[in-house]
Simulated scan of single mutants.
Amino acid sequence: MFQKGLKGVVAVHTKVGLVDGDNGILRYRGVDVKELVLDYSFEEVAYFLLYNNLPSENELQLFTNKLIKGRTLPEYVQTIIDTLPSTASIMDAMRTAISAFGTTGFLEKDTMEQAIHLTGALPVIIARHYRNQQELPIIEQNSDFSHTENYLWMLQGTSPSLAQVEALETYLKLTMEHGLNASTFAARVTISTESDLPAALTSAIGTMKGPLHGGAPAEVLNLLEEIKEESRIRVVIEEKLKKGEKVMGFGHRIYKTEDPRSILLREACVRLQGSDPWLDLATMAEKEITSLLEKYKPGRNLYTNVEFYAAAIMRSIDMPSVLFTPTFSMARMVGWSAHVIEQVEDASIFRPQSLYVGDISEK
């Protein structure tokens, strides 16, 4: 049976993640994402996704040290990034730099070791090219900082607040893994040919670059900036609905109920209420917009998706929109790697059929 874009077609068996859109459930390796996000750090959740168990204190320290080691880019990778034109997008810089790790010495490492190393390296790659684009001096990594805190440090050159770190880290943990999405599928297809991890991750990054996959939070940011203050929420949204315009940040192709990631991001914003006006605006706007959507589009059940609160969080930490998709990719590196490792164990190449619909007449 033909399904355009393979929608609904089961292509793999996986133990990495469960996405149940009908019931609004997201699980990492069988554990509800809420339990992981609320109780564990980025490093602990990443370890869990990669190894299928939570780390002991010693295992966590070793894992963290490996991530920190990955922050030191080889000189040739630094040179590649520094010679890219400023007009090259950050996603293109990421794709180029990650592919450059495909050297004999690096590929001799165990695949898991490669995955941890590249997870540690990607934030540095992002920050380095971004600061080059802005004609700002490079900020060296700080080994005393966590994965999330160090990322903000390298981007901004100042120590982020605890509220900023908590908000961004919640987002990163929630977006590490989300089933067989387009970029994850691309990574699994590449590795299924017995290629290597840098090649598979390069495929994933190239896929994530597409605006249909990784670019939605920027549109939500435009909406929040148009609203600006609580008193304008109803005016702005009613005008859009009367014109038949889409309200960005509401509705999801998979989730038919509330996106569980959105619920947890909302809770993070509520916990941080009063710490940032953009987080406060987002929580107030959601209530008003949901009410208006029910009025103008009854029965559609349009709830906030992960991009709505992601945009508020990005704005609260002064992150420009060009960094939204790279930051999303920084989190998804963990999920991509977990899927790649699982696909290696399966050892089955993807080879779907195509249906020829062209001219069959003799020329």
Rank of each mutant, 00 (worst) to 15 (best):
V9G: 08
T325G: 08
E267N: 13
E288G: 01
P137Q: 07
V247W: 01
T190M: 13
R232N: 15
I80E: 09
Q156Y: 05
L54H: 01
T83I: 10
S56P: 13
F63W: 10
A216K: 01
M333Q: 06
E239H: 05
L6Y: 10
I237Y: 05
A88W: 03
G102D: 10
R315L: 08
A97P: 10
E169V: 10
E226L: 04
A282D: 11
E75H: 06
E245S: 04
L26P: 11
D276T: 09
E59M: 04
W336V: 13
T119S: 00
L197R: 07
E229G: 13
K243C: 00
K228I: 11
R234G: 04
H252N: 06
M314G: 02
L136I: 07
A11R: 01
G299I: 02
V247M: 02
T175D: 13
Q156H: 10
G8Y: 01
T327M: 09
Q61T: 15
R232V: 12
I313V: 15
W336N: 11
R271I: 14
L26S: 14
T148F: 02
Q134P: 09
L265D: 08
D196W: 00
T103W: 00
T87K: 15
E140T: 15
I317T: 13
A338G: 05
I360E: 15
M319P: 08
V124T: 14
F106R: 06
N65S: 14
G8L: 00
A199G: 13
Q133C: 14
L221N: 05
F328Y: 12
E345M: 06
L264M: 09
K109P: 06
E245I: 01
E35K: 15
Q141L: 12
G299Q: 02
I80L: 14
S291G: 04
F250E: 12
L60M: 09
P74R: 00
Q141F: 11
A11T: 15
T304S: 10
T79E: 10
I360V: 15
L26M: 08
V357N: 12
R128N: 14
A311V: 12
A311Q: 07
E149H: 04
E238P: 02
P217W: 04
G17E: 15
A11W: 01
K246H: 03
V344F: 00
L197E: 07
M176I: 07
L197H: 08
D82Y: 01
Y255A: 01
P260Q: 03
L50Y: 05
I205K: 08
I191P: 02
Q133R: 15
